[in-house]
Amino acid sequence: MTDENTKKKFLYLNRKAPFGTIYALESLEVVLIGAAFEQDVSLAFIDDGVFQLMNNQDATAAGMKNFSKIYRALGDYEVRKLYVEKESLDLRGLTVGDLMPVTYEDEDENYEEKPSIRVVDRAEMAKLIAGHDVILSF
């Protein structure tokens, strides 16, 4: 185990929609590999990045890789903090109900399933950015 005191806080800053460019998919690949390093990991979804979490994505007819289901498995990788910006949702006519359910099992509370997606406002997002050690932008 990594010592809690030496853990670094990693923030993955996702601002781009999936499929039009590869950034969402390859960002997710970093998150999965990074999980093995047992750092403190948060994902931020701002601007078009919120589209990465849309429910019912199906890229089959577009002939592209269906990777959206990987987000749902993030809980198994101990990645439990997915921050979605409210203003970004609002601007796009979306609510959290349009997003896929992403949950994790809380081992401290009898493995109860809890939501990983947390909707935060812009001011909270600014505080999040200011509270991390390493910001990986995609």
Binding site: K8, F10, V30, I33, G34, A36, Q39, V134, L136
Partner: peptide, 9 residues
Amino acid sequence: LGQLIEAGI
């Protein structure tokens, strides 16, 4: 990709 995370650490 672990090399990127290690670089961050």
